[in-house]
Simulated assay, not measured.
Amino acid sequence: MYTIRDGVRSSTSEAYLRPASSRPNLHILHSATVLQVVFDEHKRASGVKLEHKGKVMTIGARKEVVLSAGAIRSPHLLLVSGVGPQDHLQRHEVEIVADVPGVGQNLHDHVCVHGLSWTTRKGVTSSTLWNTLNFASIKQYVNNRGGGLGDTLAGVHDAWVKVSNEGDPLWPDIQLLFTPVSHAFDFGIFTPGIHGADQIRWKGYMQEIYGMDGFGMRPILLRPKSRGTITLKSGDPRQLPKIDPNYLHHPDDLQTLADG
């Protein structure tokens, strides 16, 4: 669930790029924005057009171009480069390299339900948190990156369960994330922001248990059937794409979450 090294959460940069940065066959161009994949007369990817420090330049490839820009940016780059559904590209006046109907389709994600909290007797669950967030733990972390602050939050656990009747009974369709504190333990000071939630709505839903001891469980949909899309707003590669996640469109997704 977490990638931790020497008590610090590790990013792609720290885990892969920085250790390899001294290799003679690797050049890292920081803060560059790729605008398009460039194709030659044989419709083979031959490089990329990018913007760096206000200048637009084209960088060629001797062997191949590897497109690895995530679930949103990868299809967007293909679309603005002319690879995608022909009618959609024509609508946005993008020169067509290849008519590939599937580009930008089949978007799906693991929807989860936040806010499910149960209260307990005072001291039952908050002790877990305060045993981690105290002076001794902070001192230990500063000295040697050890202790509770150098690990995952104590008491956070996951369970993978099967709740629907269809398919392989040994193939889970729900992940249950257990947290040893409720979503209201901090009186709504930090938690809404962490989850990207509206502060006023969060308070209206959670205020009744603000500051109380408790725990939370979060059902997460592992195998969604709903499918969304990534499409162009325009042929300008600098304009962000239109994202339609289409969450819970398939009735089975909603039922599985409810069962979870």
Rank of each mutant, 00 (worst) to 15 (best):
I200R: 12
H27E: 04
A197T: 02
N134E: 11
Y141H: 14
D40V: 07
G260I: 01
P219F: 10
G70N: 13
P169D: 13
V156G: 02
V48L: 09
N131V: 04
V48N: 07
L107P: 02
V65A: 13
G60T: 03
G102E: 09
V38H: 09
V156E: 14
L35V: 01
H30T: 09
L17K: 06
S74A: 13
L176A: 06
P251N: 09
I189K: 13
E95C: 11
M212G: 01
Q239I: 13
A20N: 14
I96K: 06
H92R: 08
S226I: 06
R5L: 02
V38W: 07
A32H: 08
R145L: 09
I59L: 11
T3M: 07
K55R: 07
H183L: 03
D40C: 06
A136M: 11
I220P: 01
I209M: 12
V8D: 10
T119V: 14
G148Q: 06
S234A: 13
D109A: 05
T132I: 10
Y141K: 10
R23L: 15
G214C: 09
H183P: 00
Q207Y: 08
V83N: 05
D158I: 04
T58W: 05
D198M: 04
G146K: 15
I72S: 03
G211V: 00
P241K: 05
Q255P: 00
P172Y: 07
V80A: 02
S182A: 12
S117C: 03
G7E: 10
I174G: 00
M217V: 15
K139T: 11
L177F: 08
I59M: 10
T229G: 02
M206T: 00
E64V: 01
R44M: 15
H195F: 15
D244G: 05
G115Y: 08
I59S: 02
W171R: 09
G70T: 12
N106L: 08
I174H: 04
D173A: 04
S22G: 07
R5Y: 04
V34C: 08
S68I: 06
F215N: 01
E51W: 01
I96N: 02
Y210D: 00
R121D: 12
T120W: 12
D244S: 15
G235I: 10
M1L: 11
A15P: 06
A71G: 14
P180Y: 05
I4K: 12
W202M: 14
L129H: 08
V181S: 01
G167V: 04
D40H: 10
S11Q: 12
G211C: 03
I194N: 10
T119I: 12
D236W: 04
D213A: 09
L248P: 00
W130T: 14
L257K: 11
V94E: 01
Q140L: 12
V83H: 10
H110L: 05
D186N: 12
I138L: 15
F39K: 12
G235C: 12
